[in-house]
Design a protein around this nucleic acid. Structure first.
Lengths: 207, 207
DNA sequence: CCTACCGATCGGTAGG
DNA sequence: CCTACCGATCGGTAGG
């Protein structure tokens, strides 16, 4: 009478654990995520949960990977087929706003990467390294898109892609805070307005 | 042979506990702050630590209050005597950069308010309320300063103080992340550059 | 401000 | 995937 499942069932269980982990970590952080809480939520034993990952750190990394895959599929991939430069960048920026906007069931407590960044920036180890790597990859993609836009003449030749990305990332950090802490429903519009000014798409720009 | 201290000594002990709490919470968060850790760091008993506050939540609130007092004395007060408007705002902005810059022993893990905001934005209760109240007060002060600047003609009459503060806060959130997660030493300069553009102090501005 | 203690929960393991 | 268990630590209390 072993309750041992088939490989397919085991994979499904693993996915369920990770999905739940992402949701919990979005609210309580990756450190606040506990095996016992997961076991209760999923009606499993603690050993059953932990057996899929071995350690809590491996579970945290799996949650980060999954959140990263969600971000990629929701923010980057829909824009992938668009022409590079400002057009594609604006599509990414709009999808990113939707990603952070409320009523998203997958991240009830807000952006997991922002939370994990703040939670682990004072520590060393694989979790911190993974968060830093993901954020760096995304910042670089934005810089690349802006470089293309400058070369294509969509932005003034003096525009500094790294500087623009610095300001752009700040907008999204504040968008997340405005939504999660203040429930500010005007924040998406404020973000769009700032983006238009930052990218020079609000009005023709003197070069 | 009671080790009971005088009132003055008790107050000093309380200050030591709070100072240490701010430093720990800066790295591990207000939730990651534990009585046992404090007791070890301060060579006290857990009961001795907790006796000053009663509950962990009261300790968290005391740490927030103390951090708030530090922010006020380091960022707002030095600029208080300056003329209102852009002059005073720029002094505040510069002090705020210094506040977030590394090698500040009081906040080894970065801005406690940003950390607490992310940590508690998915919860209810006094800690979340206090964080939200502090951030709201500071945002309002910035808006007031900008309103004055607009009325004084230091900014174009069409400038939107709320919008500018939205963008300004994002810069500081990203400054904190850039310093703490990436150790990016160019971040303060990038912040100054963005501020100059945001406040129109980089060049005379067509109204 | 201490010692001594409480029940609850933590991450993790043994063995099946 | 389970039961049963481990030592450690959590916030907090009693009593002095």
């Amino acid at each position: 009478m072993s309750p041992r499942n088939t490989i397919a069932e085991s994979r499904r269980t693993r996915q369920r654990i990770i999905d739940r982990s992402v949701a919990i970590a979005s609210v309580d952080g990756l450190a606040g995520l506990t095996i016992g809480r997961l076991a209760i939520d999923l009606s499993m034993s603690k050993a059953g949960v932990l057996g899929h990952f071995g350690t809590k750190e491996a579970l945290q990394l799996a949650a980060l990977e999954r959140a990263s895959a969600m971000f990629t599929s929701l923010v980057w991939e829909p824009a992938a087929a668009l022409p590079p430069g400002l057009t594609r960048l604006q599509a990414v920026c709009e999808a990113w706003i939707a990603f952070l906007d409320t009523e998203r069931a997958e991240f009830p407590g807000g952006c997991l990467f922002t939370a994990a960044s703040v939670e682990f920036d004072g520590h060393t180890g694989p979790v911190r390294d993974t968060v830093a790597r993901l954020l760096t990859v995304w910042r670089r993609r934005l810089v690349s898109e802006l470089r293309y836009a400058v070369e294509a003449g969509e932005l003034p030749s003096g525009a500094d892609p790294e500087q623009i990305v610095f300001e752009l990332v700040g907008l999204y950090l504040n968008l997340n805070q405005s939504i999660q802490l203040f429930g500010d429903t005007t924040a998406p519009a404020r973000t769009r307005h700032a983006l238009a000014r930052l990218l020079g798409t609000d009005q023709p720009r003197a070069d």
